[in-house]
Design a protein around this nucleic acid. Structure first.
Lengths: 197, 197
DNA sequence: ACCTGAACACCGTTCAAGT
DNA sequence: ACCTGAACACCGTTCAAGT
């Protein structure tokens, strides 16, 4: 009696409620399972209420993509600060990407699909996301790890490679174990052969 | 008078008609623009007629993905046979991938998204697609081009990298020109530095 | 501001029936 | 075999109206 779920009104946090629920829905049923009307029903509001917070379906999808980039950026930052050694740091970054693909395949898919009317906040989130790997690659370059002459290009190629591996995992074409092997190889190519002391 | 479009019946080629039209639709409007009912209207048949050829929407999408893989496999094979030199061949292969992303972004997206109930024919098309790059990498390995010890792993990483670059192009995050630069870098990493004679 | 309720124009999917 | 036409249960989106 009197639980939060009974309250028919959301005092400005309806947006967060809808977004949380949308995240759950795509996690268990993919993007196709997403329905604005169902989200509204789950939140206990009329089907027209979400329109105050998301102009249309694209806006909701963009908001989810933004959340995805923020999530991954945070995990990558944490991984980067946790490992002082460049090689370890590089590997940790790659592992975050692949783990994300394995646990959030639908969200990853959203993040790397053509966006319709992306809001500035999404563009900013994407920029911050790129910035983490950029920092790591530039630091490596400073320390003499230079697989290519231009570190900016190295970083772009690295992002492409990691996204490619992640997609193979997310679509189920390779297993997480096989992805681990590919991360080893990526590290070999971008950082150099491991010391087998 | 008496043009093919007037005929209300398709003698077994309705499937091909629907698929061609579906390809056009996603090329100009993305996957979201795809509607079975609209496809049926365009073909001049009832909205229930497509069901004979595609059990549901997923079946149509899978058929499109299959067509995409066949298209790309053919272009890659042509590119591979056109260039005897390994480096040229490698580059041509990468260029096919990126060109495909630029001209068929929606189709590429379908091909690298989690499939629902993929038919054996799609699985086979994917296998044949991988086989082309596998052949090229194995030939290179034979000839002494060995960026990694295991050519099978080299091939998988190459596919991931090319798909990653293609996705960046398809989503509009980099231009085709920037992709060309990344192909240069990919070639450097996988084949070695170019002779600057 | 924020939400409701009715309305509009679509969907995918199913199924008995036609030829 | 292949297709039709009606029916069902949904959608996204819009908009006047309520508090």
């Amino acid at each position: 009696m009197g639980s939060a779920a009974d309250k028919p009104f959301h005092h400005g946090n309806l947006r967060a409620v809808l977004l949380d629920r949308a995240h759950e829905v795509i996690r268990s049923g993919g993007v196709d399972a997403l329905s604005l009307r169902e989200l509204a029903r789950d939140a206990g509001v009329s089907h027209a209420a979400p329109r105050r917070h998301f102009r249309d379906r694209h806006a909701l999808v963009n908001a989810l993509a933004e959340r995805g980039f923020e999530l991954m950026t945070r995990r990558m930052s944490d991984a980067a600060t946790a490992h002082p050694d460049h090689r370890d740091r590089f590997r940790a970054l790659a592992e975050v990407f692949v783990d994300f693909a394995a646990t959030e395949p639908a969200l990853l898919d959203l993040m790397f699909t053509k966006t319709v009317d992306p809001p500035p906040s999404l563009t900013e989130a994407v920029r911050r996301f790129y910035e983490v790997s950029r920092r790591v690659v530039l630091d490596g370059h400073e320390a003499g790890v230079r697989p290519l002459a231009d570190p900016e290009r190295t970083q772009m190629l690295l992002i492409a490679t990691l996204q490619g591996i992640a997609t193979l995992v997310g679509t189920g074409r390779i297993t997480s174990e096989e992805a681990g092997v590919l991360i080893d190889d990526t590290t070999t190519l971008f950082v150099g052969p491991a010391d087998d002391r």
